[in-house]
Amino acid sequence: MYDILALAAANLISPIILFFALGFAAAMARSDLSVPEAIAKGMSLYLLLAIGFKGGASVAAHGVDATLILSLIAGVILSFILPFVAFGLLRKLTGLSAIDAAAVAAHYGSISIVTFVAASSVLSYAGIMAEGYMVAVAAAMEAPAILSALWLVARASGSPGQKGGRMDPRLLREILLNGSIVLLIGSFAIGATTGQQGLAKIEAFIVAPFQGVLCLFLLDMGLVAGRGLRQARGLLRPGVFAFGILMPLIGASLGLAAGLLLGLSAGGVVLMMTLSASASYIAVPAAMRVALPEANPAIYLTLALGITFPFNLTLGIPIYMAVAQAVTGG
């Protein structure tokens, strides 16, 4: 246990995590530090392109095996199951209504691609390899949770289509083809097609500057998370706050079990844990506003962005790394 904590503490001291902490602290202290919106959007596109391409190039180098398909299936199953766990926990710990609980649950079944990028980067910083196709697993885990949440609402209201959620074909298309997913999967496909030769051609753009851009991006995310948390402090009753910390740990445990069953490397297990522990704060909130407009967005955005995202980034990822390394011996 001491070894795990010592390893977690060592992993905590990485530039990206410290820059996130800087942004978070600046926002909480009401500093006027800010990153222009267009620059933040540009950095997000860059990070998705880089992580997708590198994942694809890695798959091209190491080949495709059955574990890739099984990992995708495991990711989809986890995304379907996690909202049920989250919903049950929310109903036990908080006084949230069924609609609010289901909306929050959808976020915890889906994933945060920024948390995934940060975990990949921390792994690379620590010299730990991970399966390149985990990028595809991340994309596959984005949407299924939304269906689970809508089913939960329909069951709770007892009248599907009345006060329940609406999942029309257009919404499904918007979720599956949201810009982040298209760029991530597109870059992954290009990386897989062009392989190491393609990577060598754009390496100067997507490898060397990556850590620096991620630092600046996470500084901005820290500012956003800190401001969101400051504005919505009143919503954070102890039960809600506890959920925001407990749920990622439960998700990570399920991710750990899945990763071990699949026989993933230590890095792959960390990424599976991180994906299962993270909560969406970009794609799912937008889907929930369309499908479940009665749910209070302040609750799910504050939980996903103000509690779970900072927790995963500062404590979660180092803990997942330490546990995965201890369990796999990697």
Binding site: E37, V224, G228, I282, P285, N296, P297, A298, L301, L305
Partner: peptide
């Protein structure tokens, strides 16, 4: 009715 909000710093279109 839902309180104050600002476009600045929003990461999601939802807000």
């Amino acid at each position: 009715r839902s309180g104050k909000w600002s476009r600045e710093g929003q990461v999601s279109r939802a807000a």
